[in-house]
Design a protein around this nucleic acid. Structure first.
Lengths: 227, 227, 227, 227
DNA sequence: AATGAATGAGGTTTCATTCAT
DNA sequence: AATGAATGAAACCTCATTCAT
């Protein structure tokens, strides 16, 4: 039995290794420019071997996306549990982004792939069957709920339309991340990235909080001191 | 001499025609999916002929961009002249976007190409020689000035960092436009697009105006009734 | 104007040349084993060039088929005009096959491709839209008419079901040709082929003529003395 | 020694199982479209294991062919023992085909593979060493004998050339089966197949019987009521 | 000035076969 | 004995670019 398990584990490890290499390459060169040959070479495998692990190129993207997507959602959801208001929740959401960047740059890959796999997100309603990709719409729902909650608890401006604002928040977040993704890898310093994200998120914050809220809550701390 | 001039004029007309076709195709299918063959066919020319007018594919994009870029800048600058405050100016800026959409969808092409030609804009400072492409940085400067002006005249929050905010405004504008560009052309209704742009711009407005400003200025009118 | 025409002509010649090479290769190696690379090499062109003349591999087969198919049908139809009875007509049909073999072996290519393009012919009724391929069904109709005519004029057994017999005749003709196609090219001597075709067609003849017909009509002459 | 025998037996069982699966797949999809992976999956084995039992893909086909071929020959030969004339013998031969179809469709596989393994059969004389494949030539001899016998006993037309007719009969039989094999599996109804085979075989019968034979013998009964 | 023929590199995918474990 | 990971050749197709005419 140990053997079966080991084989199973090794197979998963190799799959994961391929995804790792693909992720790195996408981070370096962008989703569109990465070829199966690139991935194969980087994984020190033949092109044919990739097809033992994934049905086709899109399946690699989808796996990458699902993996990063669920980690992202779990990570974020867990953080949100402690929030005592909508405002605190969205602050925690964005501080999660900062911390995720501290861990790795996967979030860039995540968003880039999303734009390939579900290109009409978030402007058009999702087609539930679109390749099993649900995460984006879960995130949309999560943000929408959080806006509603903030309106209910008085931390957000009651004039907001939660669905509309949720879309806008995602569009804006997407914009900043895509802009970062376009930078040459050597220029993507955490310093720069975090500063721009901070500025963007704080701008959104100022736009949606209820008038008269505590001004100190409009500042997002860049966090754990690792920068 | 008349002959030389006529030739010159015809050459320019031909160039313009090629760019027209390229622009239409890019709008329909996206920058990446348009091939030289597509452009040639649509222009009723041979592929080879395209290379008489442009060095390569990127040169077509660059020309397209310069053309649309200067029109855009002129259009916008002209409108801004009548502004009596920074706030009024940025409102006019965005209302220009709406009106430009009313005329055509070139703005989608403009922004899409910009992301190909100057991928690190606006996050990294422009390298003055980068293919002669200056427009994006002019726009950045323009917005930055307009923010400064608003701060000076009391219509914008004095705590803003004009350079930072200008970048953020551009990143956000870019985000919304790129999201729209990704939609299948059939789904890109003016109705949807304008609504999302309006929502996004109004969000920014709320974030940057000075406290206590006239609330009615936070609403952007969708305009000339053509929608 | 002469130039345009010459270009046009040259283009057609090159198209024809590609088809020639493809035809030769299919004759040598069989439809399935011929690759685009083979055709390109044989035509002294690059693979990419083939796609200037044909949309894809199937288009080459279809062109080859249409060409050979219409020539075949015209050739045969012309011969049939002089027939004074159903029996004479089918004799002329088959004698046409012999003569066509005298000219070239295209008929092998024709039938081989047919089995790829319309694999359920003649057992299933044709779907009128199947890639514009009509020839097989025209031939089927022609044979069916000719059987009916023979029954009417007393030269064929009145017990025959024309539709059924037409199918069977085609199946059998197909059988002999496919058997020939499978032979290594070096072994495909006209002598052998014609002898087998003759034997097969005579067998069919004996099976369908009305009892008491002139026995000499059951022998098919191998023709023009070129063998 | 018991162990050795058991091993031997188990090995043979496995081999047989692999062949079973391969046969089913070939019937469904055609010889050319079946891959080693398909067979392995269907046999619940790994691809590598197939190579423990067979040298290569062709060896599987050859084994399949030898197996089905000898069964076919035995089946047919046994039936032919009771025949009292050449005519009765060939009727029994074809009625065997019908009955074999009642049992399974293996005959399609048999003939399809034959066309791959011995492509020049029956038009060229067999090369005795050709992969040990003898069955086709045994069948050819059997039919030839049976024609000779019919000529001798007066049931067949004395003008026939037994060798030539035997080849023709095989070519025709092959034609009908290959036409059937090309049908999509869903369209291969016993009803259709048997009707076409019946029509084809009856046509041959009419062509070879001696004049004045009992007309009722020209009809082949479709048999045991299972259709 | 314009053409259009041609190229060649590069893209994704398939599959029979080998081999270390 | 069995595995399954890996390979590498080969298939079809696309496209920016070049160049003789």
């Amino acid at each position: 039995m140990g053997i079966t398990e080991r084989k199973e584990r090794e197979k998963n490890e190799r799959r994961a290794m391929i995804l790792d290499r693909a992720r790195e390459l996408i981070l370096e060169r962008g989703v569109d420019s990465v070829t199966m040959q690139d991935i194969a070479t980087s994984a020190e495998l033949s092109k044919g071997t990739l097809y033992l692990y994934f049905d086709n190129k899109e399946a690699i993207l989808a796996a990458l996306f699902r993996e990063a997507g669920s980690y992202f959602l779990e990570y974020v959801s867990a953080r949100l549990d402690t929030a005592r208001s909508g405002l605190e929740a969205i602050r925690l959401l964005w501080m999660s982004y900062f911390d995720l960047f501290g861990e790795s740059n996967d979030i860039i890959v995540l968003f880039s792939i999303r734009n390939v796999l579900t290109p009409s997100f978030p402007l058009l309603p999702g087609t539930p069957n679109a390749g099993d990709i649900q995460e984006p719409y879960l995130l949309l729902g999560l943000i929408q709920n959080l806006i509603s909650r903030g309106i209910a608890d008085g931390s957000f401006d009651p004039a907001l339309d939660p669905a509309q604002i949720a879309r806008t928040v995602i569009v804006i977040t997407d914009g900043i991340i895509e802009n970062i993704a376009r930078l040459p890898p050597g220029m993507r310093t955490n310093r720069l990235i975090l500063q721009e994200m901070k500025s963007t998120f704080e701008l959104i914050l100022r736009a949606i909080v209820a008038p008269g809220c505590d001004r100190s809550l409009l500042i997002l701390p860049l966090g754990s001191g690792q920068f």
